[in-house]
Amino acid sequence: MNIIINGENKNFKEKLIILELLKELGLSDKPVVVELNKKIITKDNYNKELFPNDKLEIVTFVGGG
């Protein structure tokens, strides 16, 4: 299925939860914030299933300030 991540179309298997997606992207142990279809998904909801054409914004926090 197609998922739009930070504006780019990407292809993933069906029945995917957010945590699995983050693992596939190598981000599961990185400090991130995830927005799904304009709503922030907190970590306790990373078992939420994704559906075709869902829009995700994923920001990885990087050091500096």
Binding site: E35, K39, E57, G64
Partner: peptide, 18 residues
């Protein structure tokens, strides 16, 4: 950028301090 209702993030989202 605005994410969700309450979060705003400024920066280039990429370049970390090293």
């Amino acid at each position: 950028k605005k994410l969700g209702k309450y979060l705003y993030i400024s920066g280039d989202f990429k370049h970390e301090a090293n």
